[in-house]
Design a protein around this nucleic acid. Structure first.
Lengths: 372, 372
DNA sequence: CTGAAAGCGCTTACAG
DNA sequence: CTGAAAGCGCTTACAG
C-alpha cells in the first residue's frame, strides 16, 4: 500500500513542482549571447567582453567590427550574468523614508537621468528607520542584491547606523543631506540654512518684526538647519526669534494647521510665519482662513520645498526651492565617480536653495518695508 | 620608438583597466553559498536548492535541518545566480507615465506590499508613450532585464502596442485600467464610471441642473469612462449634460484654471462642476477665487482621485477615491497567480471608487435639494 | 527521496 | 593585442 501510494504521488508530482513561477515560465528563447557575437566576429568571447567593458588592448578595427555586429543584432549583455561574474549587480538602490511623494519622484527621475543608457537600473526601497528590524532589513536587502550603489535621501540619509552598515557591506552610497555628515565624496550637500536665511531677510525687509518659525521635527536635520539659517538671517537685521514664536511641527499639514491655529489665536500674534516646509505652510493657510486672517495683508507666509501645492493654493505661496531632480542626478553620478574624483575633498555636489517670491508675502499691517 | 612607446603604455595600463567600477569594487567577500549550506547539512547542493524553491521530495527532517542551517547563518540565495539559471530575473518592473506623484507612490507601495518577503524587487521605469523610440526602449528594458513581470498604470496601461511587445517578449504583465482592455487575468479593473456616476447623482440630488463636466485629455481612457459614467448618473435623474457644459481639459491644474475661468465667466455659468481629476478641480477653485465666486455657496465642485490636495485647500474638496495602494498590491499579486487562477475568467481584481463628501458641495444658489 | 554532471552568460586570472 | 580554461552561484536534465 505504502509503496503504491508513493508511486501514485510520484506520478502526479514531477520533480520540483513547487518551484516558483519563474522556474516554469522561462521558455528557452533564442537571444544572442556573447558566444554568438564572438563566433560572428571570428574572435574569442574574451575579446567581445573587452569591447563590452570598454577595456583597452583591442585593435581598433577589431573593436569596430565587433561593435557593428553588436549594434546590428541589438545584442545586450545579460546583466545577471555580468553581475554574477562581477560579484556586483547593475542595480542602484534608492532607500527612502521621505513623506513627500513629489520629492521622492523627482529624486527618482534625477537618478534615472544619470543611469540612462548606462545599463543600470533603479530599485526602490522605502523604509522606516524607527521600525523594528530596520537595520536587519537593510542589510538583507543590500547584501542579497549586491547593489552597485545606494542613494540616501532625508531623513534616512542622516542615519549613521545605516551608513556604517552600507560601508561594512562594501556597498557604495551617496547621501543627500543638509549637513556634512559623511566623507565629502559621499555627500550631496544642500545649504538649507541659506535658503532659510533668505526667507528671514525677505520678511525683515518687508518690515516684519513679530516673526514665527514653525519647525520640522527634531529627527530631521533640516529642521535644525533651517531654523539656524532663519535665525542667522534675522540677526542680519538685528532681529531675534522670540522663544515663544519658535514652535515645533512635524512637517505635516495637520501639524501646520494645529500650530498655526495656536499661533494665530494669540492676542499678539505674529505678522509673518516661516514654515519648515510647504505642507506645514499650507496648514497655516487653513488656520488663517478659519480665523478670517488674510494672507498676505494680515499675515505673510513662507514655505520650503516649492512643492506643487505652493502654486495651487490661494494666494500662491512664497517658498524656498531646491533643484531636487538635479540633486538626485548628481547623487547617482557620485556613485560612478572615478577613484580620483572620490579622493577629492569636495562634496559630490552642493546646492543652494533659492527664494521663489509669490503672493503670500507683503509688509505687515500698518508698517512700511525697511527697503524694497 | 613605436615599440618602446607601446611598452610604456603596456606598463601603465594593466589589462581591462577601462572596466566599469563594478568590476573593481568587488572585493572577494566570504558570503555563504549554496555549496557551504550543502556541506554544513551534509547533503548535495541540489537538495538545498529544493528547500530554497520549496520543491517536494525532501524528507521532512532533512528539510527542517537545512532550513535551520539557512536561518542560523542568515543565508540568502543569490538572485543573480538564480535568475541566470532560471533565465528570468527576480525583478518586477513598474512602467509608468502617470503625472500624479502621489498616485505613482501609492502604486509603488502597493507593489512592494506584495513583493515583501518574496525576494523580488521593484524596478522603476518612467516612459513617454508618445516619445520617439518608446517601444524600442521598452523592448530593450524588458529583454535585457528578463523581468519577472511588469505592472502597467494609466495611461501607458492602455497602450496595446506595449502590451503586444510584452507578450512577444514573454514578459508577464498586469494592467491597471478603467476598462477591460485585455484578458481578464491581466486586468486590475477600476470602475471609474461608477465613481463619476456617484458624483453626478450627488449633484443632482442637491438640486443642481446646470452642471459642467471638465474632461481629461482623450488620450486617457479614464476621461471617457468618467464622462460616460457622469452622463449616466445624470440620466438617472432625467438630466442631460449640455454640450456647451462639457469642456476638455488636460488633467492639469493649468487646464482646470483656464477652463474654469471660461466656464465661470459665462452669464449662464454652471452651478456645479465635476472635474476629471483633483488637479483640474483645484484649478477651478482658483478660477472661482479670482472671480469672487464662493465654493460651495455659489458653486459646487467635485474632483476625482482624492489626492492630498483635496483636504489641503479651502473648503475641503469632495472627491472620488480609488484605493490606489491596494490596486498596486493586487496587480503585483496577479503576476504571481497560479496557472489555475490565471485561467479564470475574472479580472485579477476590481475596484469601485467611493465618493468622499467634504465641503465643496451644497445646493445651488436659490434652490432646494431634491432629497437629502 | 537524493545526487553528480552540465549549463545559464558572463568575467577573472593566466598565458602567450 | 588575443584567447583557452576555470569559475561566479545557482538550476536543469538525467540517473538512481
Amino acid at each position: 500500500m505504502k509503496t503504491s501510494s508513493r508511486r501514485a504521488r510520484a506520478r502526479r508530482y514531477p520533480d520540483d513542482r513547487g518551484a516558483p513561477p519563474a522556474a516554469k515560465r522561462g521558455r528557452p528563447r533564442s537571444r544572442l549571447t556573447i558566444t554568438d557575437i564572438a563566433r560572428l566576429a571570428g574572435v574569442s568571447k574574451k575579446t567581445v567582453s573587452r569591447v563590452i567593458n570598454r577595456a583597452p588592448y583591442v585593435q581598433a578595427d577589431t573593436r569596430a567590427r565587433i561593435e557593428a555586429i553588436i549594434a546590428e543584432h541589438g545584442y545586450q549583455p545579460d546583466p545577471q550574468a555580468r553581475g554574477l561574474a562581477f560579484r556586483r549587480s547593475f542595480l542602484v538602490g534608492l532607500i527612502h523614508d521621505n513623506p513627500n511623494p513629489q520629492y521622492v519622484e523627482n529624486i527618482q527621475l534625477g537618478i534615472l537621468d544619470s543611469l540612462a543608457g548606462r545599463g543600470y537600473e533603479l530599485v526602490i526601497r522605502p523604509c522606516d528607520r524607527r521600525g523594528p528590524g530596520f537595520l536587519e532589513d537593510m542589510r538583507g536587502f543590500v547584501e542579497r542584491l549586491r547593489l552597485f550603489g545606494v542613494v540616501l535621501i532625508p531623513s534616512v540619509s542622516e542615519d549613521d547606523r545605516l551608513a556604517k552598515l552600507l560601508e561594512s557591506a562594501d556597498c557604495p552610497y551617496v547621501r543627500i543631506a543638509c549637513a556634512s555628515v559623511d566623507k565629502p565624496q559621499r555627500m550631496v550637500l544642500t545649504h538649507d540654512a541659506r535658503g532659510a536665511a533668505a526667507a528671514a531677510r525677505r520678511l525683515a525687509e518687508l518690515g516684519h518684526r513679530r516673526i514665527a518659525y514653525l519647525s520640522g521635527p527634531p529627527l530631521f536635520r533640516s529642521a535644525h538647519e533651517r531654523g539656524a539659517g532663519f535665525i542667522a538671517g534675522l540677526a542680519e537685521y538685528g532681529l531675534e526669534l522670540a522663544p515663544d514664536l519658535a514652535v515645533l511641527g512635524a512637517y505635516t499639514y495637520e501639524s501646520g494647521l494645529a500650530r498655526g491655529r495656536e499661533l494665530l489665536a494669540r492676542p499678539d500674534r505674529p505678522t509673518a510665519i516661516f514654515a519648515g516646509n510647504d505642507e506645514m505652510a499650507t496648514g497655516v493657510y487653513s488656520a488663517a482662513h478659519e480665523l478670517g486672517i488674510r494672507i498676505p495683508q494680515d499675515l505673510s507666509v513662507i514655505g520650503f520645498d516649492d512643492a506643487p501645492i505652493a502654486t495651487r493654493i490661494w494666494p500662491a505661496m512664497t517658498s524656498v526651492r531646491l533643484p531636487v531632480r538635479e540633486m538626485g542626478r548628481t547623487a547617482a553620478e557620485g556613485l560612478f565617480a572615478t577613484p580620483k574624483a572620490a579622493a577629492a575633498k569636495a562634496p559630490v555636489a552642493e546646492f543652494t536653495p533659492s527664494l521663489i517670491e509669490r503672493e503670500s508675502t507683503a509688509p505687515p499691517p500698518r508698517a512700511r518695508p525697511t527697503r524694497s
